[in-house]
Amino acid sequence: MIPNTMKLFVGILRPEKFQLILASGIKYFAPPKNYDDIEIPERQRLRIYDKVPLYPSNLKPPKMQKRLRYMRGPELLHNKLQLKQYGVMATGGGRLRHEHFEMVRLQVARRLDMKRMFAIWRVDPPWQPVTKKGQGQRMGGGKGAIDHYVTPVKAGRIIFEVSGKCEYKEVYDMLRIIAERLPFKAIPVSQDIMEKMAADEKWQEENNLNKYTLKYIIQNNMGGCHRFISKYDHKWYGKYV
């Protein structure tokens, strides 16, 4: 009988145990992605948006109630990337003021390589009036004057898009910085990320083992929940406020 340590030594000393073939092959660098189908328009930077919408001279600019419904719930129309490349998507509702438009525009102008890329707006210029009473004014005396204009944005809306002969990594920093500075929660996205998010959501819906989802509970009025839920819960089943 050979003791175990001896066996180990015998194992190590056999040269074929540690045979290592070192061979260097041909390095393969994949050809760069083809962006020939992308045409860069004349204007690469974002357009300057007016601070105040233009009204005909005979029309007094109307005042408006708050209309919070313009910020609530999911965006159903402008929630896809038109140019199929990169952009910033709002993940929560909010309002864009003129300052935010300027911030986005300047950041894009600063960080965009205009030989290869271009950017477009996906939101309207500020159109909703917000009224404010002057400082130190007593309550009463009717609705205040229009202070500024805003653009309401719902969750899932694309704010602006960047396209061109570039990869996501190149524009990611710009998108991230802008997304951080917007007045609502926003994330930088690419087409791949959007597709993955949609697929993940689908998977989560299909693989949820808890059959008592909020939708099921609300639809069946379980626990008499209709007594206390809001009408928006009937619409979005707790996903949005």
Binding site: Q204, N208, N210, Y212, T213, I217, F228, G238
Partner: peptide, 16 residues
């Protein structure tokens, strides 16, 4: 509020 939070907790998704 409490009752709604209960619903939310009950309906938390579970993936195994």
């Amino acid at each position: 509020h409490f009752e709604k939070q209960l619903l939310i907790d009950i309906s938390k998704p579970y993936y195994g």
